[in-house]
Design a protein around this nucleic acid. Structure first.
Lengths: 268, 268
DNA sequence: GAAACATCACACTCAAACCTGTGAAGTTCA
DNA sequence: TGAACTTCACAGGTTTGAGTGTGATGTTTC
């Protein structure tokens, strides 16, 4: 499988990559060497020039590089910006892993409470296969998606809309949470340090606290980029969660630190 | 292609319909005859009983009919008419006129309460020009649209999602309404007779009553097709509304009847 | 203007998603 | 209980759409 077929001029390892894998490699190349040639790319991947152009168009759209005649160069604003783009992609993968794991904690018939995090967004497709379910959230995007699923009883938490988070917050949201009770809640936050969780926004802290209180078991979903960071407001101590779920890329040292404080930590 | 193969017992015209076409025909049948037999459907379409069951499940989910042993029956009179798919096609022009008039009753800075009617749907674009506004509703489609407008503070009324109306209802919705107060509310209903308004669904009646109670001025928006009709549940007497707005196509006789009972009636 | 490169429009491939039937297992009704 | 009906799980069959290449047609560069 790793052996080159006689007569083939290109590395067969690169043949079966989809656009995604190819574009990831192109990103690496352009970041390390500063520029790439379209023709060279076509040869080294064993694809046509057209396909390379399409890849470069896509990467340009994402802001990773800039096309030029004959190939592409790294964004002038520097490696940093590209690294951010790369990081946010890596985080997406982590979030998908967290979401997949979280789906495993849900069983048909349960009542589930979701916050307005992007991790939750990745969780939604998995829920379609775990019906019947009752799902409550304050996240507008999720409400729309859930409303189209069969055998999902959707509950909206009311409140004042916050365009930045696309979710509903404030007193109405908190009031509704106080009069409901859920089997399980999935909550995320922006920072975790030591035995505490943090978030930079007051009103979100208020809602998340109430969410945790309204659920039999509340699971905290965080990718490892959130660890060893803080934010303005203290949210809750880690031990108030039934478990803390982190992505597989979390360093062992971080895991050990988390586990110090009588906290159950699971790796997705 | 249009010729029947020898030995085939069923009508070839019905063979190539997808689920969609088949379901449309089933809908017609069940509406005209009141009930259908699963076995007969299977034979007349030349498909298996399993497929018919899947069609009926889907139509039941859409609120078009109700499954029963051996087949399906039409939804109790009136319920189907409250189905979004049906309502949105009827009297579009009248509804747009009502919506335009209603927009004239809104001024920048107001807090506005909207119900889940299609008339409200047509009102939304007008609101963009009347900002700043605070707008509350239990109608999912409206929440999505409003969330994209600038200078509109959006408030969601929470509750249990109802796929047929695309809106949130039940206790949580009513509770939030009880703790809020609005300058103006726009409410619609499915039937008006004499001095009373009616609606066929219990849970909607409960929400609309609370909406009217939560607003300084509540306006009833009805196109003339709703007049001289009744539905199962009494909603509210006409005089509880600040005004009743009807479309210009309303017969003069109807107008006179409405005005008999000390009710303010405006023509859009 | 010729060569190199970029884009466009169309067609092909292949895998995922959808639709359907089958037979077994479960449920309801008489 | 037995018959009719419904649901479930799985396995074809079909359709759809993403990904790709090809050759024709623009566009840039020297």
């Amino acid at each position: 499988m790793t052996q080159a077929t006689a007569g083939e001029t290109d590395d067969p390892r690169d043949r079966a990559l989809g656009p995604e894998g190819r574009q990831a490699l192109i990103t690496e190349m352009v970041l390390s060497t500063g520029s790439v040639s379209a023709q060279e790319l076509a040869e080294s991947f064993g694809v046509s020039a057209m396909t390379v152009h399409r890849d470069l168009d896509e990467l340009q759209r994402q802001g990773v590089l800039r096309k030029s005649r004959g190939g592409a160069t790294a964004q002038p604003s520097g490696t940093f910006e590209s690294n951010v783009a790369f990081r946010s992609k890596a985080n997406i993968e982590a979030k998908q892993q967290l979401a997949r794991y979280a789906a495993g904690l849900v069983e048909p018939g349960m009542s589930v409470l979701l916050d307005d995090s992007t991790t939750v967004f990745h969780l939604l497709p998995h829920l379609a296969g775990l019906t019947p379910l009752t799902v409550a959230t304050n996240y507008l995007t999720a409400l729309t998606d859930l409303s189209e699923m069969r055998d999902v009883q959707v509950v909206a938490l009311g409140g004042h809309y916050d365009a930045q988070h696309r979710s509903f917050m404030g007193t109405p949201c908190i009031e509704s949470l106080r009069s409901m009770r859920f089997d399980v809640a999935f909550v995320s936050t922006s920072a975790v340090t030591g035995a505490y969780t943090f978030h930079q926004e007051d009103k979100i802290v208020a809602v998340k606290r109430e969410m945790v209180a309204a659920a039999e078991k509340a699971h905290l979903l965080v990718d490892h980029s959130k660890l060893r960071r803080t934010a303005l407001h203290r949210l809750l101590p880690l031990h108030t969660f039934a478990s803390v779920v982190v992505d597989p890329a979390t360093p062992a040292a971080e895991l050990a630190t988390l586990r110090e404080n009588d906290v159950r930590v699971d790796v997705a």
